[in-house]
Amino acid sequence: MFGVHKKLERNSIAFVLGVIVVASIGGFVEIAPLFTIDETVEADPDMRLYTPLETAGRNIYIREGCYVCHSQMIRTLRDDVERYGHYSLAVESKYDHPMLWGSKRTGPDLARVGGKYSDEWQAQHLRAPRSLVPASKMPNYAFLDRIQVQPDKMASHLRALRTVGVPYTDEMIENASADTIGQADPDGDLSDGVYDRYGAETNVRNFDGDMRKLTEMDALVAYLQILGQLTDLPDAPGVEPSSDTPSEEDNS
C-alpha cells in the first residue's frame, strides 16, 4: 500500500501525529483531572441507587429523547434555585450513565421534580399534557399505558450498569425482576424485598393507577418521582458544597 513516496508519506504521518498531539492535550487537560479527584463529586455514603423499575423508567426517558426539551441541572443562579430548588450537586448524577443534564429548556428543569406532583397528575400529564397545562408544547405519551415493562430483562441492565461502576449487589441483580414487579405492587409479597434492598424511603406504590398491569407509564412516573430524591445532601443543614463546586465569588 505504502511504499512509493516514502519520504512524503512520512511528512503527512508526522502531520497527522501533530494534529493528534496538539488536539488531545486540550481534552486531556480538562477531562483527566475530573477522573482523579473525589472533590468533583461530594461524598455521600447514603446515596440511593435507582431501583430496577426506576432504571426502566430512566431508559424510557432516554428512549423518548426527553433531554431534548428538559434539563436536569439547576445552575448556581438565584432565579434557577428559586424556581427549581437547591442547585444540582455533582454527586446527584454520580450513577447517571449517561448524565441527562440537557442543554435546552423548552419545558422546565426536572432535576427536582420528584414528589412535586402526585402520581395521578404525572400520569395524566404524560397521557395528555394539554388537559392539565393548556399552553404546553409537550407530545402526548398515552402509548406508554399500552406497553408492558419486561421485568425479566432488568437483571442484565443492572449487570451492565455494575460493569460501568454502579454498585449494585449480587442480590439486587438476582432479584431485579421481582423488585421491578414489587415496587409497583405495594400489597403484594414482593414489595418487602424492594424496601430491604433499596431502602425504606423507596417509593413503593402503583404509579399509573392501574393495578392490572405493569406498564411503561408506571416505570416513567416512578423515575420522575425519584428525581432529586436520591440523596438528602442538598437539604442537610450546614452542608457546604465542596471547594470545587462553582459559586459566584470563587475565582480560583
Binding site: 431508559n59 455533582a90 447517571d96 450513565h97 448524565m99 441492565h157 460501568v164
Partner: peptide
C-alpha cells in the same frame, strides 16, 4: 441498549 462508560460530571465534560 448500552450504558455509557462515564457518568455524571465526567460524562458531562
Amino acid at each position: 441498549k448500552s450504558y455509557s462508560a462515564f457518568s455524571g460530571v465526567q460524562d458531562a465534560m
